[in-house]
Amino acid sequence: MRGNLENVASLTGHLDRVWHVSWNPDGKLLTSCGGDKTIRVWGTHSKSNEGQGSDWTCKAVLQDGHSRTVRRISWSPCGSLLASASFDGTTCIWSQKNAEFECITTLEGHENEVKSVCWSPSGSLLATCSRDKSVWIWEVDHEDDDYQCVGVLSVHTQDVKNVCWHPHKEVLASCSYDNTIKIFQEEDDDWCCVCTLTGHEATVWGISFDKTGTRLASCSDDNTVKIWQDCNPDGQDGGSSRKTSWKCICTLSGYHTRTIYDIDWCKHSGLLATCSGDDTIHVFQENSVGSSYKPGFSLMACVTNAHSEDINSIRWNPNGDGFLASCGDDGFVKVWKYSQC
């Protein structure tokens, strides 16, 4: 292994398991959410990221928005709005003014637990998914704080675990307890499923695009990571945008010994980070040799007992400075620094 992950902060405050961590767009704030129904906002006092090692404090606790577990959070690309998905069946939109957060809208409609939420790269669309097996797409009118449902996609046959937008196109990916990943696009004023990725042998928990959006990484209850390639990214091959075809070009197995709960593809370094029920964090890097259609990945770093229980989420700081956040059932939020040896 040619890399090293160093634990630079362990943040306590959550009273129950922590489900998800998310950095704001400029990478200065870290947010976490969990079973205690709260969202916590963490930051450092120093202006630069250099100080991230030492002086993390909890800057705000967002409560009273949800009546059950907050499962996942997503920052709008402009950094002024935070969306939170909860087991209470709602999605809250929080507005940040100075250091204050206020819940300005509650989106209702899902039949039961909302499992994930994600802002599109332009900030004009929001996707949510739920145990009710549906994926919803909302159009955002920022002037009126109005959210209109523009698509309800009931194509998964089971609980939808996660949704994730393409880094620069209005293309959405979702993954589910039905072992599949689905790709959605808008056609003739309606959203529809344009591709189904099959290959995982159990629940797909996490998905993450690379910076170009032509590759997607997924992690699963089958203890593997799969890398998928968009073989027709420009919609050529007949001209129909329906011709999207994603193929699995690589499977990473034998690393994690239990369910891999989350995966994040760093948009700067290209490093893939995974976290698992085996309490480890792994970091992989693509080998420079080998064709782009048959890539190989090497394990760069591995931290065993990174948390004392299941690790639920992992996120690279969008600054590209190698900071990585994780959280777990042990109630901790941890910050790590990756460095090449």
């Binding site: 409609g109 209109q148 449902c149 309800v152």
Partner: peptide, 13 residues
């Protein structure tokens, strides 16, 4: 269609 029903229902509510 369901998406339009959804927006209507939220407005009426």
């Amino acid at each position: 269609g369901f998406r339009n029903i959804q927006n209507l229902v939220q407005k009426v509510k």
